[in-house]
Write a protein that binds this DNA or RNA. Structure first.
Lengths: 193, 193
DNA sequence: TTTGTTTCTGAACGGGCGTTCTTTTATTCT
DNA sequence: AGAATAAAAGAACGCCCGTTCAGAAACAAA
């Protein structure tokens, strides 16, 4: 038996990526076998190679598309630096909350990338950090922020925000909106003069 | 040939753990084989099982001893809440900087623990977080801190601080002391009224 | 209905995995 | 010196890995 009724490339391709995303996030890249991805899709392992040249590309493509989408959606914001920073905080928390698997992978599986692929991903991540750093620098120029080194502050803020997706649960004590409000306040306080 | 001249259990045991620590941090638990650990120690793979019942225990013991040492060294601090918080920030940054491999493992390899082992590690981590939360709660009681939810603030601060060890390099632009100073200021600002 | 193409199966490849076990050697004790 | 013990070597166990490939089944075009 080969080729189950009704199946097409346009359906299976995304399902392969979705299964890989879920399993990589759950167990880690190295612990997930191509066979387990195939099983999740409901296909034999050989069929996966119609959709990816190899396992490494599967990981890389997931990371790259996540970061490219992140960059495409992250605007530079409007208003003064404080407004723009508040907007960035809300955007980051909400965007990452909606894509916990992709976030997890993008932060945890960097060491499983080949050197060339790592450079690409690192470049994208750096571009995202630059969006925040530009806001912080504008605030310093305005005189409304009082941070000594904008690069450090950028990393501190991003680490703080990204941490949310490691513990926040919809079923928990607080709504995402509560969390967002408190983080906005903490971040704005952290960088003020 | 068996048993190289001059070797003893008290020497090899720690070397096994050190090799595992380094390799787990470098490549991830799942990607490191018992054979590669043995090679790093300079021994055949079978000899490792004189020092650990299995690979999982090796990971668990590394995490547990790291967290137990962390708890043993983290004091509750002295003075008012702001002083104690500043002390916590400095301690966390310095302690984690001195043990980057252990920190990395303790945060990245949680999902490779068995359920029972995970509960133990999670309990230890929680006790460490409680040290910080108690300081924050004291500050709120004093009226010097203005955070709505101490649990959220605890996680935010720890995520921020732990992030340092992912990017800080001795060879970089800033000294650890510079970083420490700026983080102390950012954290104290973040929680103030 | 035939032909061609796409998508999948199923088997196979060489190799690495964690772990166990027997045997050999270095050291310590008597 | 000889016996006992500790520590390591080396081989073997069954199993799973990523990847390849020939062939079969479903679909599309004629």
């Amino acid at each position: 038996m080969a080729r189950t009724a009704g199946s097409h490339s346009e359906v299976t391709g995304p399902r392969v990526r979705a299964a890989a995303l879920r399993l990589f996030a759950q167990s880690g890249y190295a612990a997930v076998s191509m066979r387990s991805i195939a099983a999740e899709v409901g296909v034999q392992v050989g069929a996966l190679y119609n959709y990816t040249p190899d396992k490494q590309s599967l990981l890389f493509d997931l990371m790259r598309s996540h970061l490219e989408d992140l960059l495409a959606r992250a605007g530079t914001g409007e208003g003064d630096a404080a407004d723009r920073l508040a907007g960035f905080v809300s955007f980051h928390i909400r965007y990452h909350h909606d894509r916990q698997d992709a976030v997890f992978i993008a932060y945890m599986e960097l060491r499983n990338l080949s050197e060339a692929n790592f450079q690409v991903i690192e470049g994208l991540r750096r571009r995202y950090e630059d969006l925040l750093e530009e806001i912080l620098a504008a605030g310093v120029a305005e005189g409304s922020f009082g941070i000594a080194d904008t690069r450090i502050a950028t990393r501190a803020v991003i680490a703080m925000l990204t941490g949310v997706s490691t513990w926040f649960r919809e079923s928990g004590r607080l709504t995402l909106s509560d969390v967002e409000t408190q983080y906005r306040k903490m971040v704005l306080n952290a960088v003020r003069v």
